[in-house]
Structures are given as structure tokens and as C-alpha cells.
Amino acid sequence: MEYRLKNELEEIRLLAEAIELWGKENGIPGKALFQLNLALDELLTNTITYAYPEGGEHEILLRLVPEGEKELQIEIRDDGLAFNPLEVKAPDIKQDIDERPIGGLGIHLVRQMIDEIEYRRENGQNILLMRKSLN
């Protein structure tokens, strides 16, 4: 499945609906679909919110390719500011309510939902290549 979305937050819900349909047609379990949608939501929310400080309409490309029945390849490309999610520090999730800073959980959720993440910056594009096990 290939999907192109504009840099608007409302697009993420529409993408989630499209992925639900696609996932059902391709026999992908509901739990994996939820985790996939959450990871994509977090990554795309970051891109849409921070990658285009000058504004303007941009296109983000998403590709989902099932590898047999057990794995899914995920690719996201955008032409926004360089951002490597692998450099984001993990939060301390054991802190109590007073110590806990507000925010900083998005990339942590992505890392828990996705099995492998590779980042490249090429030709002015952020490229994320990911793998998710469907077991």
C-alpha cells in the first residue's frame, strides 16, 4: 500500500481508517494494526508539527509492504527539517507525577510498537525504514 498525505494533522485520522481497511483485507491482526497506527501517528504528528516551520503544503509518502505473513516493512519519506528519531533520549517512565515532565513520550511509544527502525537523510529527505513483526 502506498499513501500520500499532506502536512495537516487531520490527515492522520484518515490514514488510520485507510490502514484499518487495508489491514483487514490483508489479514493483519487488529492488535498489530493498532500498534502500527499509533507509531505512524506519533511519527507523522512530529513531522507535520515540527518539520515545516516555514509552512506551505508538503507531501509525506508512506509505503507498507507485507513480507510474508509475519512481517511488515514500513517506509516514510518527507522533505522537512532533518530529524532522527533514534537520537531522542528515552524517558524515565518510573518517575512519579511530580517529577514526570510533560511530553516526550511519542518516540518512546514508536520504539515500543516497532521492531526495527533505520534512519537516513538523503537528498533533503528524511527516510525511515522500519520493520514490524506481526506475530
Binding site: A16, N37, D41, T45, I97, I102, L105
Partner: peptide, 19 residues
């Protein structure tokens, strides 16, 4: 049936303020 980190952020903010 769905919450992302943006939702968690609001919940933590509310919990801190209420406390």
C-alpha cells in the same frame, strides 16, 4: 479506543494542575 502521546500529555498536565 485510541490515545496517542498528545492525549497522554493533556492527562498529565491536568493531573499535575489538579494536584
Amino acid at each position: 479506543d485510541y490515545i496517542s502521546s498528545a492525549g497522554l500529555r493533556v492527562l498529565l498536565m491536568a493531573a499535575k494542575k489538579s494536584k
